[in-house]
Amino acid sequence: MTADAPRKSRPVRRIVLEVVGWLLLLAGAAAIFLPGPGLLLVVAGLAVLSKQYEWAERRLEPVKVMAFKSAADGVQTWPRIIASCAGALALAAIGVYWGIRPPAPDWWPLRDSWWLIGGWGTGATLILSSVIALGFIVYSFRRFRGIPDPEAAAERAAREDD
C-alpha cells in the first residue's frame, strides 16, 4: 500500500468518513479567519481523515502531542488557569454582544450593514468556541494539574488517544 492510498474499509463508510473529514478540514480552514473554533475543526478533520489516509495520521500526531503539552502547561499555575478562563468567558461575552448586534458606533468607517456581520450565527460560533475552551480547561485541569512531569504525561496522553 502506498503512503497516500486509502486503507481498506467498506465503501460507504469510507465515503462518509472522506466527506466528513474534508468538510471539517475546510470549515476549520475558514474558521481560522472567521469567528469560530478553526484549529479544533482542522484537528477534527485530520482525525477523521487519519482513519483513511496515512498522510493525515502523520500530520495529526505532532499536533496532538503539541496540544496535550499546551494543555498540561496551561494548568500548572493559577494565573494561567484564571487567564484561560477569563479569555474563554470574554469570548462568550463577545459572542453575546455580536448576537445582540447593537448599532454601529460613530467611528465605524463602513456602512452600518457591515457592523458585526452575521448576527447570532457568528455570535453562536463564538459562544460555542468559549464552551469548548472551558471544557478543555476542565479536562486539562483534571488530567494534568499537580502531575510531577506534565510534559511526559502529555506525551503519554497523546499516544493513548490513538
Rank of each mutant, 00 (worst) to 15 (best):
M66A: 15
A71N: 03
P148I: 04
F144A: 07
A133C: 05
S84G: 15
G146W: 08
S129D: 00
L128Y: 06
L49M: 04
W115R: 07
M66K: 14
F144M: 06
S113M: 09
W114I: 01
I94Y: 11
S113V: 12
Y97F: 15
S70T: 12
R101S: 15
W114Q: 11
K64A: 10
V43S: 02
P103L: 07
D73R: 15
G146L: 06
I81L: 14
G121F: 12
S113G: 10
C85Y: 09
R80Y: 10
P103V: 05
P103T: 04
L134H: 05
L134A: 07
A72S: 06
K51Y: 09
R80M: 13
R142K: 15
T77F: 04
V43T: 06
K64F: 11
P35E: 00
Q52R: 15
W115V: 02
P37W: 01
L39I: 07
Y139A: 07
S50K: 04
T125V: 12
V48M: 09
G95W: 04
A104D: 04
G135P: 06
I100G: 06
W78H: 12
W120D: 00
A104S: 14
G38T: 01
P150E: 03
W78I: 10
G146Y: 08
L110E: 09
A93M: 10
R145K: 13
A124N: 02
Q52Y: 03
A133N: 10
V63H: 03
A72G: 08
G99V: 04
Y53G: 01
P103M: 07
